[in-house]
Amino acid sequence: MLQAVPVAAIVLGVLCFSPLAVQAGKPAADAAGEGYPPVLPGRPLVFPYDLGAHPDYRTEWWYITGWLRDRMGVERGFQLTFFRVRTLIGEDNPSRFAPRQLVLAHAAVADPASGRLRHAERSARAYPGLAGAATGTTRVDVDGWSLAAEVAGEEGGTMEGNASGRYRSRIEAEDFGFDLSFDARRPPVLNGHQGFSQKAPDPLNASYYYSRPQLAVSGRLRIEDETVEVDGHAWLDHEWSSEILPQGARGWDWIGINLHDGGSLMLFQMRDAEGRAIWAAGTQGDATGRTHTLSADEVRFEPVRHWRSPRTGTRYPVEWRLHLADGRKLGLRPLMDDQELDSRASTGAVYWEGAVRLYEAPPDGGEREIGQGYLEMTGYAERLDM
């Protein structure tokens, strides 16, 4: 197995939220920039092709977060991310052992009973039978961990207008594991401008990015030696790019929330070294799947309460107030404070990735929970080394 600490800058160089003159969605090999193809506006996302890997690009990930409930009513959060990284190393070497592509994965369960985040990671160079990411459909695996799509119309058809689709993931770690199915009942949501998601004032800092909110989840969850049946809801992000962290940026904050009314809310901001937003954006969706794109001046994150990690000493804003252009003020609160993920054995980063509840204060006073999802915060321990 190849440890991937040296490629941390590549793996987390694009936002994890939490994505060309191309025909049929298949990118041509363009040696732009440092040997990677650029992300350009106007390139349509084509399904099912864009469910799969885009190996010409620098970095890519499939990222699933969600809430699970067992038969006793116990709620837990879970997170699963598969990364694919093109290294530009050994590309002229015909050996199958050349580390041209790396595959890495993070998995975690937010377990309030233990008060901590259970997490594990895997990493390997792409090699048949050990690790890989297929093109044309979602099928990625590393060292026994897997995520695969089973999509209606996958053979000989497209997913445009087709809401159905299923994913399945199997993860086994030392103190937890899960075997989960994810059912999609609506087409992918294209973030930004039809899937072109800008990350900074300069449009060169961008990714191709779509989401699949409101996934219905079912399956089994293991905590230590106990396995339980679970169901719940999840969110999938798929994003790929050739860019690294924008100049002047230290990190980002991202949320993906499944709203209780069937809608969805994705927001993110890029922060500088002083914690100020240098860019923000988002996508709102309603229960029918119709979406509205939020621009940089329509989103504002305000930290409310902080928590300090007893392991790294990092201080994270674990409660937030979100200000939207329509005047609404929404609140975020964590399922539990300690959801710090230390991935220095694979991607080299320490970040906070956790289950949160979304609240709204109605005009008649009080507050009510309107959604559940995940919050990701990077760059608080240190700036990603790029």
Rank of each mutant, 00 (worst) to 15 (best):
A133R: 07
A173P: 09
G327K: 09
P44N: 02
A349I: 08
N258K: 03
L20Y: 13
G42H: 08
Q3Y: 14
F182K: 01
A200N: 01
R220L: 13
A349K: 04
A110F: 00
W279D: 02
M159A: 09
L68C: 07
T291V: 12
P201L: 11
T135Q: 13
T227D: 03
T135F: 10
Y210V: 01
R290T: 14
P19H: 13
G354M: 03
G115D: 06
W240P: 06
P37E: 07
G33Y: 14
M386R: 15
W62C: 13
R185L: 13
A107F: 13
S211L: 04
P112E: 06
S146T: 12
W307K: 04
G52R: 05
K329D: 05
A29Q: 07
I171C: 14
G136H: 01
S114M: 09
R168I: 03
R71Y: 14
G263R: 02
L215S: 05
R96Y: 13
N205E: 06
W254H: 12
F196I: 04
L12E: 15
R344H: 14
V7R: 01
G348R: 03
L384C: 06
V299G: 00
A133V: 12
V5Q: 15
A105M: 12
W252Y: 15
W252F: 13
E353V: 01
H54E: 07
V103A: 00
T81H: 11
G73T: 08
M266S: 14
P303R: 04
G161P: 02
Y208D: 00
A134T: 10
G66D: 06
D326T: 07
D50V: 01
P55R: 09
N93V: 15
T138V: 01
D253T: 12
T137C: 09
P128T: 00
A277C: 08
H306T: 15
S169L: 05
F97C: 11
P201H: 02
W62S: 04
